[in-house]
Nucleic acid binder design. Sequence first.
DNA 1: TTGTTATTGCAACCTTGTTGCGATAAATTA
DNA 2: TAATTTATCGCAACAAGGTTGCAATAACAA
Lengths: 117, 117
Amino acid sequence: MLAVQEFFENSDYAVSVVDLVNHFKEEMNKATVYRILSRMESEGMIHSFNGMDGLTWYAACKHCSHDHHEDQHPHFQCKKCGRVECLEISLPIPKVKDHKIDSEIVLLVGECNNCQS
Amino acid sequence: MLAVQEFFENSDYAVSVVDLVNHFKEEMNKATVYRILSRMESEGMIHSFNGMDGLTWYAACKHCSHDHHEDQHPHFQCKKCGRVECLEISLPIPKVKDHKIDSEIVLLVGECNNCQS
DNA sequence: TTGTTATTGCAACCTTGTTGCGATAAATTA
DNA sequence: TAATTTATCGCAACAAGGTTGCAATAACAA
Ligand SMILES: [Mn+2]
Ligand SMILES: [Mn+2]
Ligand SMILES: [Zn+2]
Ligand SMILES: [Zn+2]
């Protein structure tokens, strides 16, 4: 589990679970990676969301703990390099007639700073 | 293909591809459903997106054709009844420093009109 | 009718993700 | 320390969504 923890501590970006399984494939079993990720998520160390591709992505939590999860921020995926990051901003939840809206899942798509020529 | 077309014409809601495969399982093969959906999507009759569950959902297009797809609207999923609908509104694309944002994938989650007691 | 193209059924396959279980490691307790 | 309990792990098998190759059929055109 420590290796996975360090992986997140040393990265500002989110990572897809597929990449993670692949990255650790010589060190640990696929099932172990999935189990570590669920454990870390339930302890408020990381959070998960879906990327454009439909895959599950994970990223380090900034201000969460075991009993206080708050990861309602939008995410950004770069079309060119594929990198995904958490955006530490809060978007207004839109009002829609006849709908009681509790939360908002947002994935912004575009080009990151590195990829803009 | 006609049966699937009619299915969309008679519904205001989106439908998950799993429900569709299940709904047509006596009439046609799973592969056929998937192929019909891709064809209909490439012809601008329907569009697809991801629900909370990670599944692929499809909904009828309102103003699209073979060479003009414009399905950038947000979607809404009711936590209680599970129904998913297209919202014919346009949300402002947020500006984020150091990011060139081209599009925005939004899934609003809450309670629909029917489910609010 | 005959040849050509588009659609379908079926089975096999790929991928993401989960689960049961025995083995090993870590933490408790005596 | 030694025995016991608990947590973690590897492995293999499985489940579910989704895709693909191929032969059969249907639709279409000449
Ligand atoms: Mn995040
Ligand atoms: Mn829609
Ligand atoms: Zn980039
Ligand atoms: Zn509802």
